[in-house]
Structures are given as structure tokens and as C-alpha cells.
């Protein structure tokens, strides 16, 4: 399902700026994500991708600019409130609630993020665990999971909050080909359910399989935009991302 070009943006960033000391990680970013769209975000390490997610979800306060979610300015809202309004994210380095079981991780996210009574979340959390391949680990402590299962848990916990906008931060990193294919199917399915997806990823073929549009971030600026196969041919992208000089 491709969103029509004139669909209202679910997320609109205007003039986002952020610097850490002398390092500029966002230099006036303008970006609109349409409802139902799947947007890929590419960029070399240090390009400011994760900081961008931080500013969208509220864990990083921008120096300037606004974040609009469903037409409302959410720049001053706490991460928790943004989550309850329908934003969810996964973390690049998995951040499980280590002392809780996998199932409890989801119940916590579902009952607070989606604002449901605890018992009302059980069925949905069980179904998410099943779909994310975590059912066999449901009653294990999340702190003891191996990397693949930690990545799955990141995604599962984000889904438990019933997001309208799902921000994925390198969930495919470190996965094998077949694991990656399963993940791509899963993200497609989530999107087919009406969830808007913004996905930071270095695994280009995974991104290309899901994203309608890809933007490339470098030095805190968006330097290219288009379909995945198009943007990688943009000379400036080839230079910063692949290390190939433009005038070579």
C-alpha cells in the first residue's frame, strides 16, 4: 500500500538543530513523513541518525526547530507522552528491562505505552511474542538473551505500545540473511497494519525491500532523497557513504 503523495504528514520536522560541543549533528533538518509511509534513513556513522530519532521521540532536546506529530507540536512533550500518543522506537544498542522477563517487558510497554489495563494486554503481548519468534523465551529474564533475541525484543516491545509511528534503529544489524528476511517480512506486516515506519539501517537490501523513500543524512543535513536504488547512485551519497570521491 503506497500512501498518496498528498496524505497528511504524520511527522513533520522543521528546522531541527542540535550540536554537541563543536560537533553539529543536526543542521536545520526539514522532513515530512506521510501517514502510512515507510521511510528509510541512510547515512554513515556519526551522521546524526540516532540523534534525529532522539529528537523525534523526545530523549534529545533540539537546540532549535519543532517536531510536529499528527499536526500537533510535540517538541516540549516528554518521551513518555509522545509514546502514549503513538510513537515507538527501538534502540540501536538493545535496551531491555534486564530484570524482567521477556513477556513482562512487553506487558510493561503495552500497559503504559498503549494505556491498557494490564490483563487486557496479555493476549496481544502473547501474539506479538509469537510473531516475533520470542514465544520460547517468554519467561526468561531479558538480561540473559543473546543478541538476536534482544533485537527481536526491541521490536516486539515497541509494537506492544500500539504505535502509529514506529522508529527502527538498525534492527537488522548483525543478523544473518535468513534472519534479516524474517525481519523484513515482519516490518512489512506491521506497515500493512497501518503503522508508519521510519527505519535507520545500514543493511541496504533490507531497507530497499520495505522503504518507499530513502533520505540520506550526512553532517546533520539531508543530502539526498528518493528510492533506495536511486539515492545510492547520487554522487554526493556515493562520496560520503561509500567513500568514493565524486570526481574520481
Amino acid at each position: 500500500m503506497n500512501p498518496s503523495a498528498d496524505a497528511a504528514p504524520i511527522l513533520a520536522l522543521r528546522g531541527l538543530r542540535k550540536r554537541f560541543g563543536a560537533v553539529v549533528v543536526a543542521d536545520g533538518i526539514d522532513l515530512a513523513v506521510r501517514a502510512g509511509e515507510a521511510l528509510g534513513v541512510l547515512g554513515p556513522n556519526g551522521a546524526g541518525k540516532t540523534t534525529l530519532f532522539g529528537m523525534v521521540t523526545g530523549t534529545v532536546r533540539p537546540d532549535a526547530g519543532t517536531v510536529m506529530f499528527e499536526g500537533r507540536d510535540v517538541t516540549a512533550l516528554s518521551p513518555a507522552r509522545r509514546c502514549r500518543q503513538g510513537m515507538a522506537r527501538s534502540f540501536q544498542v538493545p535496551q531491555p528491562f534486564a530484570g524482567l522477563t521477556v513477556f513482562e517487558n512487553l506487558v510493561a510497554a503495552a500497559s503504559f505505552g498503549a494505556g491498557e489495563g494490564e490483563r487486557a494486554t496479555y493476549d496481544r503481548c502473547a501474539a506479538i511474542l509469537e510473531r516475533c519468534g520470542l514465544m520460547a523465551r517468554a519467561n526468561e529474564r531479558a538480561g540473559g538473551l543473546r543478541l538476536l533475541d534482544r533485537k527481536r525484543l526491541e521490536l516486539a516491545r515497541a509494537l506492544a505500545t500500539r504505535p502509529k509511528l514506529l522508529l527502527l534503529d538498525e534492527v537488522a544489524g548483525g543478523l544473518t540473511e535468513s534472519e534479516c528476511a524474517v525481519l523484513v517480512d515482519l516490518v512489512r506486516e506491521v506497515r500493512a497494519g497501518g503503522v508508519t515506519v521510519v527505519w535507520i539501517e545500514h543493511v541496504l537490501h533490507a531497507l530497499a525491500a520495505v522503504a518507499d523513500r530513502v533520505v540520506v543524512l550526512h553532517g546533520g543535513r539531508l543530502i539526498a532523497e528518493g528510492r533506495a536504488d536511486e539515492v545510492v547512485r547520487v554522487p554526493a551519497v556515493a562520496e560520503v557513504y561509500m567513500g568514493i570521491p565524486v570526481d574520481a
Binding site: P79, A80, R89, P96, F97, L100, V107, A108, F112, G113
Partner: peptide, 25 residues
């Protein structure tokens, strides 16, 4: 036993993730 118990443990384990899951830390 309530969901607030889960919230407490979530906060103890990972404050940033807890905030991102809708928990008012």
C-alpha cells in the same frame, strides 16, 4: 502485583527505555 510494579522495575533497569515505553519515570 500491579502494572506499577512493572514500571518500577523497568525504571530501575533502564530509565531511557522506560520513558520511551510511555512510563512517567
Amino acid at each position: 502485583r500491579s502494572r506499577h510494579g512493572l514500571a518500577l522495575a523497568a525504571i530501575r533497569d533502564n530509565e531511557v527505555a522506560a520513558r520511551s515505553c510511555g512510563i512517567e519515570v
